[in-house]
Nucleic acid binder design. Sequence first.
DNA 1: TTGTAGGCGTTATCAC
DNA 2: GTGATAACGCCTACAA
Lengths: 349, 349
Amino acid sequence: MTGRNRNTSSRRATLADVAQVANVSAITVSRVINHPDKVSGELRQRVQEAIDMLGYIPNQSASSLASARSRVIGVSIPSLSNIVFNDVLRGIYDVAGANGYKVLLVDTHYSPMEEEKMVRTLLSQSPEAMIITGGDQTRACERMLLKANIPVVQMMEILDSPLDMNVGFSHYRAGRDVALKLLETGCERLGFIGARMDTRVQQRLAGFTEALQSSGKFDPGCVITTPEPSSIALGGEMFRSLISTTGGALDAIFCCNDDLALGALFESQRMNIKIPSDLALCGFNDFETSAYVNPSLTSVHVPRYEMGVTAARMILDALDNKPALEKKVDIGYEVRMRQSTRTAQDPAK
Amino acid sequence: MTGRNRNTSSRRATLADVAQVANVSAITVSRVINHPDKVSGELRQRVQEAIDMLGYIPNQSASSLASARSRVIGVSIPSLSNIVFNDVLRGIYDVAGANGYKVLLVDTHYSPMEEEKMVRTLLSQSPEAMIITGGDQTRACERMLLKANIPVVQMMEILDSPLDMNVGFSHYRAGRDVALKLLETGCERLGFIGARMDTRVQQRLAGFTEALQSSGKFDPGCVITTPEPSSIALGGEMFRSLISTTGGALDAIFCCNDDLALGALFESQRMNIKIPSDLALCGFNDFETSAYVNPSLTSVHVPRYEMGVTAARMILDALDNKPALEKKVDIGYEVRMRQSTRTAQDPAK
DNA sequence: TTGTAGGCGTTATCAC
DNA sequence: GTGATAACGCCTACAA
């Protein structure tokens, strides 16, 4: 069962086998599969019967080799555990699959070196296009990508100078907007909890910091970060820690994503800290839980599925030689104010 | 940039190009890449320099074709959105990647027909092995898989007669155990909320039902299901609906997974129903949130990552012709009692 | 509409 | 240790 014998009797059927059974030439079988309209009805049926009878499945390696078309799109994401990428992948798979493309997916574990290795692996499969995450590639990785001479989309964030195409949003502006919104609700002392601290999280923090600095309200003592991956458990721990180091003097905390924010929210309940009256809480990414937890969690909503769809569409358009409407698409975001933050104060009051 | 011209100057470097630059034969270059120890140090270095200089990346299609080894493992899951599969995939990717295998992943959207199509797609890539979900394949799909003559692991559930290898656990017994545990805590009228209703959820319900029937406590009026995919929002709706149709007479509700259970929990808070005193709640799959929400959610924990790792290991062992210790592995599960259910009554009392 | 010839880039086999 | 030759299974180009 699990062996790999290649004796003549049980080897995989080939185009030639089908051709022989159907009493036609190999190329006719190929046509029945790839261009059925170019074969007469009678032959088509005879060939189809032979295909079914032999259980013939085309050998995609041979096809790729001969045609220089692999029908594969390479996709590289930094983490399989971060569910943020689920929605994006769904968008990519939906569009790619509907158009006859397979997706070869790799996980770089947030490491540019590993990404370089993975991209090399992907390229060895002769993908017709690549979708990769962010702009932190090694120089060697960039060179490979450029040399491959295929459409490339960098996704998740807006880049100053993308390799080719780009879809995402500005994490810097999102972080800044969160700070501004919190200030608008009357919060004065704002804290930040950040984990993993990849480029995008760093940008959120940079924007957040900038907004506070320009209103003279930034206090580095209210920021805690860790390179560890974020989780609900970690959010709880960091929340407790930040509350204790700041002596409970904070008005609001911005958590760099919803895992952390939910952890903080649950921990605050255990610590008997009232959200939002004692303390406001804001997350990032807008997980489904965030909208339904009590109190519901203010968060930054990102159209992730749409981002995946857009990335894939940009690829397909490029492969079809359609003129790309835009090489750079800002997919946007939206700060969704919910119960975990206070309502904006009436400026007229 | 996004074109696909194949003029001589910019085409991808081949083994022959490298060989020419290094002034050796093609096969020597191949050896440097695949069996470096079989090439003298001097040649190895010269070839390596040529490889770097040309940015040579091997063509895996050609390699697969010539060697009949693709280094690809095909993986088929029913849903990319169901985060249950994230952990499993992580396990598979970790093990496969560490052993030089690529993963080709497809999503069947819980449809056997689509699965058949996707499996065909996977097989056309000449995978060296396959990992698929559950045992609900079409006959045609089974035939293809058998005919491919490669190791196959069916995962997620224990099957009576697997195609080849199998790793999972009994959803029937898990559902039954939940009912028994709830009965032990003194609950008498048990409800069930189920969504998607795929085979595995049906088995959970069957086990749950059986346990209740054998103690004369089963009431079909306390069971509601829907074919819709589960979500937190849906959990809230179904909870509200079940409470209303049963007139609030339930002691406990078993939700077929944690999405639904969390939705129910959040909705109960809004409805001012006290968990667990008014009503006990139990989920399934033990998401991270479940352990940290207040009250924490009783759920059935499943070692998903380990299941993925095990599936991949079984595959690797089979590919190495190691005698499989077991063709069927029960990975188990554990009902984790938390605050959302009552504590077992002291039988001595 | 159908078929023939040749080659895609790599590796297995066998020779040196 | 190194190289020549012949597949691997399919598709493009051209011919009939």
